[in-house]
Design a protein around this nucleic acid. Sequence first.
DNA 1: GTGAAAGCGCTAACAT
DNA 2: ATGTTAGCGCTTTCAC
Lengths: 348, 348
Amino acid sequence: MPRRRKRAGRAPTLADVAQHAGVSISTVSRVVRRHADVSDDSRQMVLESIKELRYRPSTIARALVSGKSNTLALLVSDIGNPFYPQLARAIERAASRHGYALLICNTEDSPTESRRHLERLIAHGVDGLIHASVGKDEDVLTELVDERTPIVFVNRRPKSEQAHYAVADNRDAARQLARHILNFGHRRTGFIAGPNYAANAVERREGWLLEMETVEDARPLVSEGGFDAVHGHEAMRLWLESGQPPTAVVGVNDNVAVGAMDAILAAGMNIPEDISVAGFDDIELASSRILDLTSIAYDTEALAERSVQMLLRAIRGSGVEPMREICAVQLKARGSTGPVSRADDAPA
Amino acid sequence: MPRRRKRAGRAPTLADVAQHAGVSISTVSRVVRRHADVSDDSRQMVLESIKELRYRPSTIARALVSGKSNTLALLVSDIGNPFYPQLARAIERAASRHGYALLICNTEDSPTESRRHLERLIAHGVDGLIHASVGKDEDVLTELVDERTPIVFVNRRPKSEQAHYAVADNRDAARQLARHILNFGHRRTGFIAGPNYAANAVERREGWLLEMETVEDARPLVSEGGFDAVHGHEAMRLWLESGQPPTAVVGVNDNVAVGAMDAILAAGMNIPEDISVAGFDDIELASSRILDLTSIAYDTEALAERSVQMLLRAIRGSGVEPMREICAVQLKARGSTGPVSRADDAPA
DNA sequence: GTGAAAGCGCTAACAT
DNA sequence: ATGTTAGCGCTTTCAC
């Protein structure tokens, strides 16, 4: 009844295996790295010793020697926002397909947190960074990151001309959504925007307004805000209290839209009979009958795959041309948006 | 107009700093590690060189020397389930407070994935593991992990008697929820359970049935399932089609409850007038007016803090006694549960 | 107070 | 086909 077959303490090393198998360290190393130039005999012996000793190569030592850690890192704004886990999962899979591990870091959109994470990640020797955090920290980035650690932006268009990025066409997405709303006859509409430092948020708002301008009598309202449900709630509440609320509102993301829905229900009104609601991101719950929320779906799989590919290319060949990728979006029309029904300013 | 003040290529090392500052490597190392025994003069020089060269100590080399990586890893079942990001964030903060970085891994509840991650993590030299993935992989764990990499289970009661864990009292939580439902007069009730391999799911079901048994004429139904909304939907659909659906159903988590709600709405019935619904986890959306879902709230902050503390203790002193911690739960009664209203088998 | 030197576990020449 | 050796960047004795 052996408790542990291995004496506790030090983990077995190449040298241990070599000794056990009666060969040299290099031979073991060759076997481990699946190098040719090893006789079947030796290989057999080594393999057995490895199994018996439960040897596992140390990534740390490898990283120290090779300067490569086979690890990528992903920075997200808010892991609590359902969109990011979805993206993270896709990126993790993509990275894994290419033999890389992925570290996920939560920046909470704070440059301080970004800095903390970046310091750590660089010291840890990650081979590349995927940045999906939404804004405010570009200065920190340029300060800390140099060409030895390539970086790709996902779902965020960076200011720098030199940067690599994979994004969705937010402006077009917003226009599609606006068109959808306009087609239902809405004219007094509301857009609950995100913060100005976020390129995404700005693009969505711009697209929205652009499309609204194509219709003579459209009167779009815009409310500044953040990415949280509370912002959506607050903005909607104010509009409701104004006495002349929009007949359709769009949140800068589904979180915000949910907040707005909440406020509408709290005021005793109905969706979409009184007010239509829509958002961006198409979070999982959006398609459920409970939310049944019209939204813009991003192709996270494509975003993930493309960004990882770009990053790997940047890691291999340094100093490559800036790479860009614009991924498709898809309008998911659902029950939260419908025609204007009240005596209002548009055809029924 | 200097493009980069540092020549590209190799990152600066201790030796570079030493040369630049005109001192020895050891002195630089002492300064970096805030060791005493350094003259103010030397320290000054070194500090300046460090700044100028933008030197950053290599965690990799440190880890190789010290055998410690100052990194913990968290394994979760499904980062897409809103409960886990919440937990992950709390654990990340707790780890960070103690000077540790956190790696987050998604096992998708697959032993294969668990193995992949564990192999990597151990090779990467993580100092400890926090396991919040829900089941099926305990064999993999005992096979791969030895006492050099301590492990703490969170939100999951392990089979092993020796293991450390921090969990919530699921049985009690389920009883509270059952009592709440019974108090509303419900007698024909449904529990949409999770998989049998998940201790959490089993405990919740047991608690539920235990409390139901305290009432003579209660007739609890149980439906096997998974942790996803689709399972909740499917189970509810079948009950609805049976013609005698329960007047109150509880999902093994909020995801499942949402699925059930979806099915109820799809059948044209109302919540809670026709059927009451509740869940576990108290995901963020549960408190919104849209879901307004009665649920059990776990103290994720406590779970996180306690588990990290336990893990660190295990890392420092090896071979410590098994540590256990049962964290509090709180019933959040909301609008999705209400009294029986139909001509049914209970007092109104 | 400071420096020299021996490793940590591995890879990658370079021998043989 | 296999062994020897010199590092990777750091910590840590141990001298001075």
